[in-house]
Design a protein around this nucleic acid. Sequence first.
DNA 1: TGTGCTATCTTAACAGTGTTTAGAATACGT
DNA 2: ACGTATTCTAAACACTGTTAAGATAGCACA
Lengths: 199, 199
Amino acid sequence: MDQEKEDARPYHHGDLRRAILDAAERRLETGGVQAVTIRACAREAGVSPAAPIHHFGSLRGLLSALAARGFDRLVVRLDEDALAGRARTPASLLVGAYVSFSLSAPNLFDLMWRDDMLDPVDDDLARARRRALDCLRLLSSAPSEGRSARVQAIRIWSLAHGLAMLLRHGRIVSALGSEEYGLETIGDFEALARDADFA
Amino acid sequence: MDQEKEDARPYHHGDLRRAILDAAERRLETGGVQAVTIRACAREAGVSPAAPIHHFGSLRGLLSALAARGFDRLVVRLDEDALAGRARTPASLLVGAYVSFSLSAPNLFDLMWRDDMLDPVDDDLARARRRALDCLRLLSSAPSEGRSARVQAIRIWSLAHGLAMLLRHGRIVSALGSEEYGLETIGDFEALARDADFA
DNA sequence: TGTGCTATCTTAACAGTGTTTAGAATACGT
DNA sequence: ACGTATTCTAAACACTGTTAAGATAGCACA
């Protein structure tokens, strides 16, 4: 009750950029990307419809900032899993973290790859994305006997990306007709990644 | 010059559904999914803004019909490649056809997986999607020694899906810093699929 | 041939969107 | 204390999807 409807709201918000970004993320996770509109976020923050534009330039800018946040969080997740020693091989760590991230913040994960909604020349987004992709490359191109590191990296990343996408959209349960396939079966991720690592 | 601006256009279009769908696909491939709007398609077909709604119910319905067309085409592509004997193993055929489809109709491929824009209870879409996924399952769960067909199918499909997505959005060239990685290097797809098939 | 009936399309309107413009209110450095 | 720059408001414009009411044409059936 301290940012929604306080009477005598000051003319200057204080930290509007953060407030808009938080409102946008809340709306993203509950209502999908369609629900994050400039006007709705402005309403939620108690400002006029044109106020957010001053901070983000456009809706594209707002979504790009959101996506950058997503890439930052993915890096955090990868680091955490690595420090916790949560996987046997770099590849299985990548797949596990990737998939668990996509399931814990599904709409944000989607947005991160929706190029048509993002600003291709947003510096913050480009920086965050590059950091994350460097991290992925490091994990996926771990030494593997008798195979080009490039092909190896492509295979691991593709496997992680496809698995995350298909799981997140429920394609695997519905298409393969298997029983549930949630986060608890992380042993299977290990198996998938280990196989990919082995080849 | 026979459907855009003929003077004395008849009150009834003749085959408006098809005309709208074609206009929508044209706009999808050239301008992305953002460019396919009911009003724009109606303009292109020379009818009033409300006319398409009678055939598709809503924009969701139009996009769903478009996505259904996409799944149908994917099946055709898979069949063609299979009949032409264009790959050594079922898995490499799946990966090759999947990737080449995603690169030949990138925006349509994207739309097929944009659940938030599609009607979850559209019968035609559900039917087309099921046919395509049955086809994928058949190819991806080919016999493989000492491994569950289910895990095998998940691995192949994930690899194909992720590779198609990452290539289609230019992530692999930009992230892995390798030289170009276009359709002509289909030999590498074979290698990727063969490895996955082997495990 | 004529007569309903139904499908198809138009016109007009409504609510909601992103974005721009001009200007008001506040903060802040000097 | 003053002037400037930042931040926000208010109003408007051009879009969008969608609906309601009505006009038009095709079609089955007499």
